[in-house]
Design a protein around this nucleic acid. Structure first.
Lengths: 252, 252
DNA sequence: GCATGTTTTGCATGTTTGTGCAAGAAGCGG
DNA sequence: CCGCTTCTTGCACAAACATGCAAAACATGC
């Protein structure tokens, strides 16, 4: 097992349970407790956890990334979703695109012959669009959150407030027909809310595992969703709920 | 088996599993571990993976440098300059870093154990710093100029105006002992001027070809340069001029 | 054809890094 | 106070590493 892998697994566990025990990790990984303690010491030095007697606790309770970007097996599905999502676009439109791996996939799937105005707070999305000659790209700056891969905070909100868009590609969220769109992080949710407020329509592309799940922070009600892009295998019952609230369903 | 084929297979494997082991690849390809390590080293240098002890893991999602060092002739020199430039840093400092390939090299050369606050309008610099856990990263948003790889315009200026920094790493400019620092683009120069105004000291790292050249737009006078990082082969006469104006010369 | 230079590869070399073990210090509970 | 656990530090060893070198394969130019 690679040292880096161990660190990743510890991060995952911290995100899931908020704390880890040195002895437990040692037997789980099949290494000595000394090694685990060394790992925890390094991670604490890098600000990824806080060291306590007997183990470690998460640095900031809910800051952990909701998705481990590493084991992103669903890359095929996301590319399929992305291709279906960009079919909604036409030249001259203006877009908000926020963070998440699905949105990064969408950005890289945007055809190069579309003339669009795109504002994003995601570094990944901006990078993907940085060579699209016809795209007017606006970076929404602010404090960079490396767990989310996006800018958040007051500066970002101020930048969003100055803009308006036809469509908002809202990513990496929980989606539930009664609770609507929810986010895992308070600052993230604030930015999403601002983008939603300033757009004419919301587009959400999700893999099945996001359907019928909810996160702590509310972003928008289910009726705000204009377009919902899902996998072909998405449960019809759930989709029907969204459809009744006015969403248009698109299959990847 | 061709070298390129091997590289492609390693990329495939990284995409599928997120990590590879040097020993495993060696036996699979029927080559020595040294060869595999060479491959991984090259691929890491090209940003296609991240090297770890025992193998390599998939590159961080944003690390795919959009404005990479590709196509720039003097990669080696720039990395040397970068290593010399980061020697000026110490924990707790705050920095402005603007665009240019040399600054991208500097950003990627910043040690991971330095706690810094860094504000940048360069997508490449931001990407390079996106996995530095101890760096508080502030993205200066605005209209993205894809020729420069940076954000410029009124929004960017407003963001800069709210910040102050100890050092400003000023990149991609002309440098002349009488005319001072000059830029090739009006909007670019405006942002550089704002950053210069709000920093306590300016650091410039340049290859020889930038020395004793001037561009249309004036950014700062020669007396504003605090640190000048140059190649060992830089002409002494030119350096003396800058030294007389108060600059501290550092050789890469 | 032959000499010359380049690229790739494997091997020998020291060096670095991760790991486990042991000893002592420090925290915790009775 | 004492026993127990957890932690840090120093040390040793093996695995992984970078580097220099030489042989082989290949291209290039006279």
């Amino acid at each position: 097992m690679l040292t880096d892998e161990r660190h990743q697994l510890i991060r995952d566990r911290l995100a899931a349970e908020g704390r880890v025990l040195a002895g437990e990790l040692a037997s789980r990984f099949g290494v000595s407790e000394d090694t685990v303690r060394r790992d925890l010491r390094e991670m604490a030095k890098a600000g990824q956890c806080r060291r306590v007697y007997g183990g470690a606790v998460a640095a900031a309770p809910f800051a952990a990334a909701p998705v481990s970007l590493r084991g992103s097996h669903a890359v095929e599905e996301k590319m399929r979703l992305a291709r279906a999502a960009v079919a909604l676009l036409s030249s001259g439109q203006s877009l908000f695109i926020d963070g998440g791996t699905t949105n990064a996939a969408i950005a890289s799937a945007i055809p190069r012959d579309l003339a669009l105005t795109i504002a994003t707070n995601s570094l990944g999305v901006a990078s993907a669009l940085s060579d699209h000659a016809l795209v007017e790209l606006i970076v929404l700056g602010g404090r960079f959150d490396r767990d989310l891969g996006t800018c958040v905070g007051a500066d970002t909100l101020a930048a969003v407030a100055q803009l308006g868009a036809d469509l908002f590609f809202l990513g990496s969220c929980g989606l539930d027909a009664s609770r609507g769109v929810t986010a895992f992080d308070s600052a993230e949710a604030e930015v999403k809310r601002a983008m939603a407020r300033n757009s004419a329509g919301i587009v959400i592309a999700v893999t099945n595992d996001k359907l019928a799940t909810a996160a702590p922070y509310r972003v928008a009600g289910p009726e705000a969703i204009r377009h919902l892009v899902v996998e072909k295998t998405a449960p019809a019952a759930i989709l029907a709920d969204f459809e009744h609230q006015g969403a248009e369903i698109h299959f990847a």
